[in-house]
Nucleic acid binder design. Structure first.
Lengths: 231, 231
DNA sequence: CCGTTGAGTGAACATACGTTTACTCAACAT
DNA sequence: ATGTTGAGTAAACGTATGTTCACTCAACGG
């Protein structure tokens, strides 16, 4: 079964972009990337159904992707390699969070609560990626865990830069700022698990979760504000 | 293959504790608990080799326990039930930490650093339990994750009581204290993963890890100390 | 236009899996 | 002493797994 039947034996076949409408068949490379994406998406979908990545089998991933098992090897050596690709993809999603926050600018009033709500929205609209990060960052394959920690570390480093650029907490040393952001990141990712576990249509639990999260961050930044380097 | 060959067809068989030396064969129930423990230990051992719990198969768990697959069903309905037993067992280990800290008393000078070192030691001497908690608390089976979160919550609640009993941070409301302890617990468990991932014989990385952990806690408690309820 | 390339196929394999079944035989209650 | 009980066994089952192979046939490059 070919997933995308070719529209025509060969379209015009002369011009590079022959017709704006009724476009040329997708290039070979594009198709390959598409299948690759289907494999990654298939794995994420299975995890979305409450499965750990390390419990997935190659065959069910290919099944979820709508592809025969042997095709898998055209894209990845084994499941770990697929996992690493997912880490990278999730890392991009993670960095988009910072980009969005930068774009919107940080409000001066009720900064924390608003950031938390942005974050919550981000987690919900990329639930599979956050599910993957939060789920595999602690356990499973050491190689994947390590890759996720590296991605986290990268994220924290970017957050340090952003705070410097915004002139937030200028009294803190870079080292301390780094420690602060590390703490904030782990708190965020922990909250992600809570957000993803929220039962649907439970505004009460939702409010409590957000409140708790905001208060934790408030406590942390309060500590940061009174921090003295040589303690 | 019978794991514990009976010492004698039937020992004295009259007295309840017939001989202090050359003791009576273990009771039926005792043997059963022993096998059950071997199954749980087998699963933990496999996880110690860098495997996620959800990736374990029933057969390899029984293999690691030195028992035939069918025996498994005498003890657990399925692997999830075994997992829940592990959560409970790990919860006990977790509570022992508080008990030990209570027994030693909390030092007044360099309180945080000393507590961190006690914790680090505790994690290292119960590495499989902490590996299990840290590994399954985020991902894998939802039922196990939920059970772990409940255990964590219980732990945090006990920590609140202890702080009240010690008169620490008396100005904080119970709600805030609860939030504080929740934050401390997630920070602790996150640190556990780092501790367990420490390469052996790397005192440099070890010191950095401890330092970072201490500074994070210092920041948190600094924030707690200046917290005002109606902010 | 036509030969090469390589993503996706379908079949086959050896192995591992979860679960059930009838069994043994020591500990137990009587 | 004797019959019951139940933890652990050995074997068998149907199914799922990872990996390999020769294949097809559309996009590609000359």
């Amino acid at each position: 079964m070919t997933r995308l039947q070719p529209r025509r034996p060969t379209a015009k076949s002369r011009s590079e972009d022959p017709m704006p409408i009724a476009p040329t068949a997708p290039s070979r490379e594009a198709r390959k990337q598409l299948t690759r994406g289907q494999l990654m998406a298939g794995a994420l979908d299975l995890m979305g159904a409450g499965r750990g990545f390390s419990s997935l089998s190659l065959r069910e991933v290919t099944r979820a992707a709508g592809v025969v098992p042997a095709s898998f090897y055209r894209h990845f050596r084994d499941l770990d390699e697929l996992g690493l690709a997912l880490v990278e993809q999730s890392g991009v999603t993670l960095r988009h969070l910072l980009r969005d926050v930068r774009r919107d600018g940080v409000p001066l009033t009720d900064m924390l609560r608003k950031s938390v709500l942005i974050y919550k929205q981000h987690v919900e609209s990329h639930r599979l990626h956050f599910l993957f990060i939060a789920g595999e960052r602690g356990g499973g394959s050491p190689v994947i865990r390590t890759a996720i920690r590296a991605e986290e570390s990268h994220f924290a480093a970017e957050m340090v830069q952003d705070m410097r650029a915004l002139g937030l907490l200028p009294a803190l040393s870079s080292e301390t700022l780094r420690m602060l952001c590390g703490l904030v990141v782990t708190t965020m990712i922990n909250a992600a698990t809570d957000i993803l576990d929220l039962p649907p249509k439970a505004p009460r639990a939702e409010r409590e979760l957000v409140d708790n999260f905001v208060r934790q961050l408030r406590l942390i930044f309060l500590g940061a504000a009174v921090w003295r380097e040589r303690l």
